[in-house]
């Protein structure tokens, strides 16, 4: 089995207008930089994008908001993107504000064949609007539906031709669950390694979830808040 494709353009070639896409990353950490650039170039429109954040104004998913190519975002936190905040407040883009843990669980459940689940998160808030409430042990839980998407795009540190993936440090974040939620999952990796060279005990995303994989190039890995100590 060989899932390797040459580059990002080929990996995302069949993304269509109106598609739903889940994208891994937290802020601009662990984002699929090459695929986002290719989506900008492909100029697909009316996308529904599932991602914890909307990047920053000029990097990450922020690049897909410039025209905008996105009609709806399902995200938990968009505070770092002024353009996005303006587009939502003016009604040009729809935002389904979703608590971070609920977003993670929606993707996990979607990828795992579970259509919905009850969670205490958001009970008694506007997140619970029009959702079924059930009481367990005296506590309110709301029914949340899971998410699956047409495409899922993730970024990993290492991967092989079978699609096995290993992430690095907090660049893992949403990537492993996003990888499970797509009907077509695309992985870009910093380094493609030979099959057999990843210790099977250390695989984070088993290859079954991944349809296409390629080695990305020219990673910028921008830092949102550069904080240091002096010694």
């Amino acid at each position: 089995m060989n899932k390797i494709v040459a580059n990002a353009d080929i990996a995302i070639r069949d993304v269509f207008d109106g598609a739903t896409i889940a994208i891994g990353g937290f802020g601009i950490c662990g984002i699929p930089e090459n695929c986002i650039a290719a989506l900008v170039k492909l100029d697909v429109k009316n996308l529904t994008c599932v991602s914890n954040n909307a990047g920053i104004d000029d990097f990450g998913i922020g690049l897909l908001l410039q025209k905008p190519q996105i009609k709806k975002m399902i995200s938990s936190y968009v505070g770092e993107n002024k353009l996005f905040e303006r587009l939502v407040l003016s009604g040009e883009i729809e935002l389904e504000a979703t608590p971070q843990g609920t977003l993670a669980e929606k993707l996990r459940a979607g990828g795992a064949g579970i259509p919905a689940f009850f969670t205490p998160t958001g009970a008694g808030t506007i997140v619970a609007t029009n959702k079924e409430v059930r009481v367990y042990n005296g506590r309110n839980y709301i029914l949340e539906e899971s998410i699956t998407t047409d495409f899922a795009i993730v970024k990993a540190w290492k991967g092989d031709a079978l699609g096995n993936l290993v992430y690095r440090k907090t660049a893992r974040n949403f990537n492993p669950i996003v990888a499970t939620a797509g009907r077509v999952t695309i992985a870009e990796v910093e380094e493609l390694v030979p099959v057999g060279s990843i210790n099977p005990d250390m695989v984070h995303t088993p290859g079954i979830y991944v349809k296409r994989i390629f080695q990305g190039s020219n990673y910028e890995k921008r830092i949102e808040n550069r904080t240091t100590r002096s010694n």
Binding site: L103, R108, K221, T227
Partner: peptide, 23 residues
């Protein structure tokens, strides 16, 4: 750049740290 906290600040790890997914 692969090591940040939830405020997107660069950080370090302590001995015995662990990394995991959002789920």
């Amino acid at each position: 750049p692969d090591l940040i906290n939830a405020g997107k600040q660069t950080i370090t790890e302590m001995p015995g740290s662990s990394y995991f997914s959002a789920t």
